[in-house]
């Protein structure tokens, strides 16, 4: 039982971190569909730097790439007011492709000093609490939420809408980068092409299921981690085919979170802001 809870947290952590990153962007009104690609690039950057220098610098590099990814999305989605869905999907494809191309020489190498999963998991949990406080207890949080709900009104009150959105994308990007670094420096620890394996998409879905609330994202991510582990722990001891078991984490998380309350998206989500319109 303790084993299952530990797996829930340790495998839930990368999903939680990526989810928090996307959540922050979305609360400011920007849809971040680039998570999978940014995570893949961060995982590679973190691993490459950890191999050449130290794991801690690797971690920072991963976060740095995440921030850059967020800012890049901002250039298209905020400044150029491009379609956010298209911009995000392009970022996802670009990140996955670029990481595969750039990572060739790091593939299949062991990492001598991996980072401890437990410490990073605690950090992630702490960050979720901090994010909750940031959103509901600080001025920046108020700005961020108002920009996501009604950017016109926020603008009238003197809030720099574009600045806040860039801030949310950069901060959120850092969290997504941390998720990628966790995978290649602690969870695996190694790097292979495609190692994010769709976790970025799970994280995006989780944002919606968690109703854009950081604390509910913690619950959802851990629940996914728990069920993902249980599909193997229970395989063979319950008369359910393994293929059907594999769908359980996805189905049950949707079911549980759907039943646990109403959800409402930030009103200005996905809508580019333009002054005077």
């Amino acid at each position: 039982m303790e084993e299952a809870l530990l797996r829930a947290v340790l495998f839930g952590t990368p999903i939680l971190l990526a989810s928090l990153g996307a959540l922050l962007a979305e609360r400011s009104g920007v849809v971040h569909l680039g998570v999978e690609g940014v995570m893949a690039l961060s995982a590679l950057a973190a691993f490459a730097l950890a191999l050449e220098t130290s794991p801690l610098l690797g971690l920072l590099a991963g976060m740095g790439v995440g921030v850059l990814g967020g800012v890049a999305l901002g250039v298209f989605a905020v400044t150029l007011r491009a379609n956010q869905f298209v911009a995000g999907l392009s970022l996802a494809a670009l990140g996955l492709g670029a990481s595969g191309l750039l990572g060739k020489r790091y593939e299949g190498l062991p990492l001598a000093n991996p980072l401890p999963e437990g410490g990073l998991a605690l950090l992630a949990l702490g960050l979720a609490l901090l994010l909750h406080l940031l959103l509901y207890r600080t001025r920046f949080g108020l700005y961020l939420r108002s920009v996501g709900e009604n950017p016109k009104a926020a603008d009238l009150f003197g809030v720099n809408v574009e600045g806040v959105r860039y801030g949310a994308l950069a901060l959120g990007g850092g969290l997504i980068g941390l998720a990628g670094a966790y995978l290649s420096l602690a969870y695996r620890p190694s790097w292979t092409d495609g190692m994010t394996g769709g976790l970025g998409w799970v994280a995006i879905a989780l944002v919606i299921l968690a109703a854009w609330e950081p604390l509910r994202a913690v619950f959802g991510a851990y629940l996914f981690g728990l069920l993902f582990f249980l599909q193997f722990r229970l395989q063979g001891s319950v008369p359910i085919p393994s293929e059907a078991f594999a769908t359980m984490p996805y189905l049950l998380v949707i079911l549980v979170l759907a039943l646990s309350g109403r959800t409402r998206a930030p009103k200005a989500l996905g809508v580019p802001f333009e002054r005077g319109r």
Binding site: T192, G194, G197, F228, F232
Partner: peptide, 15 residues
Amino acid sequence: YDPAKAREATEALLA
């Protein structure tokens, strides 16, 4: 190829 599944399946067997 699925490192996450391989990891969790191994954890389950270790448990």
